[in-house]
Each structure stands twice: as structure tokens, then as C-alpha cells.
Design a binder for these strands. Structure first.
Lengths: 156, 156
DNA sequence: ACACGATAGACAACCTGGTTGACGATATGG
DNA sequence: CCATATCGTCAACCAGGTTGTCTATCGTGT
């Protein structure tokens, strides 16, 4: 009865589980030809591939300032995951899109995530995993992509 | 029955759930007289209260450099959560301990976490929540306190 | 036709939280 | 008694974020 976990264990375990998955993902990505990949990049690449075409755009969908988004794009450009080209329709804008390398990173990430989920399913059982996912969905905001991952440390 | 979630949803939901809890904690802490509290501070205060008495110590248990730990202590000292005093047995060391304010922050955090867990239990049901916690425990390293929270962004 | 407001991107200065490397002061053990 | 290890600090740097300001361009209303 009084064997309930203390309240602080829940957030800690959630975070640890997240870390375990993300760390594994990046270890595997490094093995598969993406040593430059960083935790943050995945989110950004995903946002770009889902239609964020400019820095302002990206900032909006990521929940950060356009300047932060701009820096992110710059970093991704440096390591060859995205490229920018001027928009002929609007010369103020520079359109960002994934390079082949960036697309590859995303595809491999998806595949690795699926593999990791399968491992969880094997360990916990399909039903338990589905229940876990459903419960997390219940307790979190619906929009999966509007997590402003960046900057939640730093606060304010 | 191909309705399985894509692999990437799991880590995202884990992180969102973590964020939801932490954000709520800090909103509530701010209301309860701890507006200076930040996500990182909780972990550090906890580590100190559990016996990390010096910067080197703290760095070790937190998994960061002694310099980073020193900066953390400095910041906590500035907002009045810890205080330092020279160790008479070893004049190189400065012993850190929580102030009354720091202890209060920790106690309130624990209480708020418990309240949040109760809300989860109400929504999901006790059994589901216990199952969720058990499953997370299964998939994560056993030592709850050796999550090197800081610096997992930044990478490398 | 044009002036004016809104927008895109860039630059600068700053914050947090991390890193390495170096260094002086103190402890400690052969 | 001296070599070595440890503690704290300083300095320089990095990643990722912030705000504020600036220019160039777009698009709209009169």
C-alpha cells in the first residue's frame, strides 16, 4: 500500500528513459556515418523536412527566436545537413532544405527509433508499451512537434 | 493492428512528460516563495543534501567537471540556497551545505512532486501509473541519482 | 504611384551551463 | 623532507539560447 514511488522518481525516470533512447540513437548514428549528429539536430532536421523553409519559419515551429533558428541552420549547413538558396519569389528569404546527407540522417534516425521501440516492446510486452505510450499521450500536450526542446534549460 | 506508434514518438513523449512535470514544479515553486529556483538547481541541491560536501565531490556525483560544479555552487550561493565554510580539517576544502532556504526548496519540491504524481494517479489510475513507473525502471539504469542531467545537450 | 508598415535575415551583446588547461596552496605518504 | 595528489579558482572557449537593432525587401492602402 505505502509502496508507492516517491513523486520525484517519475520525472527522473522519464528523463532517464529519454536520455537512454537519445544516447543510443546517437551512438548508433555515429556508427552509421553520422558522427556529427547532435541531439538537437534531429528535431531541427525534422522540422525542416516537415516544411519549415526559412529561419523565421523554423523558429516558429520550434518555439525559439528566429536568431536561434538562424544559428541552428548555420550549424547544420556547416556539417552538411542542410543548404540554403535564395527565394526567387522573395529575395529577403533564404530557403532551407535538407541535403541528401540530411535526409539520410533522418531516415536512419527513424529506423533506429523503430528498432529501439521494438526492443522495448520485446522487454515490456506490446500491450504494456502501448499502454505506456497511451498514458504519456494522455498527460502531455497533443502536438508532438511543438515541444520547444531547445532552451528549456536556461529557463526564463 | 498496424496502429503502432512510430518509434520517434516514444522519446518525444517521454521528454514532453518530463517537461510538463518540471515546468509545473517550477511554476508552483515560484508561487511558494522560490522564484529563483531553476530546473538544474533541484538536482544540485539534492546532490548536496545527499552528502556532496565540496565542489569536487559535487562534480563527481553530478557527472560534471569540478569547475562546472564550482560555478553551480557559486550561483546557488548568490541566491541563498547554499553556504560555504572552510573545512578546519583540510584548509583546501570549502564545505558546502544547504541553507534553511535551500532545505525549504527541497522539501517543497518533494511535496509538489507527490501532488503531481497523485494527479497522474487520478487520471491514469493507480495501477497504470505503477505499471508505467515499473516499466521505466526496467528500461533505465538503476541508480536514480547518477543521471548526469547537466550537459547532455551540448554533447561531447 | 508611392509611402508606410510588416517581414526576413544578420549582427552584437549578453546569459546559462558546460568544457580544458593551468596554477597556487595545502595535504599526505614514502 | 620532498614528491605527488588534491582543492579551489581563473581564463578561454563552446553550444544554444535571449533581446535589441539594423537594412533590404515585400505588399498594401490611399
Amino acid at each position: 500500500m505505502s509502496s508507492d514511488a516517491p513523486g520525484f522518481e517519475l520525472p527522473l525516470r522519464l528523463f532517464m528513459a529519454f536520455r537512454v533512447l537519445i544516447d543510443e540513437l546517437h551512438a548508433e548514428l555515429a556508427r552509421q556515418g553520422h558522427p556529427d549528429m547532435r541531439p538537437m539536430y534531429g528535431f531541427v532536421l525534422q522540422a525542416i523536412s516537415r516544411g519549415s523553409a526559412t529561419a523565421v519559419d523554423l523558429g516558429r515551429t520550434l518555439g525559439v527566436s528566429k536568431q536561434a533558428a538562424g544559428k541552428m541552420i548555420e550549424a547544420l549547413e556547416r556539417v552538411g545537413y542542410v543548404e540554403r538558396s535564395p527565394d526567387p519569389k522573395d529575395t529577403r528569404r533564404k530557403i532551407v532544405r535538407l541535403t541528401r546527407h540530411g535526409t539520410d540522417a533522418l531516415a536512419r534516425s527513424a529506423q533506429i527509433f523503430d528498432a529501439m521501440r521494438n526492443r522495448w516492446a520485446k522487454t515490456l510486452g506490446h500491450e504494456r508499451l502501448r499502454a505506456l505510450e497511451a498514458d504519456l499521450r494522455t498527460m502531455t500536450p497533443p502536438d508532438l512537434w511543438r515541444l520547444d526542446v531547445p532552451g528549456w534549460f536556461g529557463g526564463q
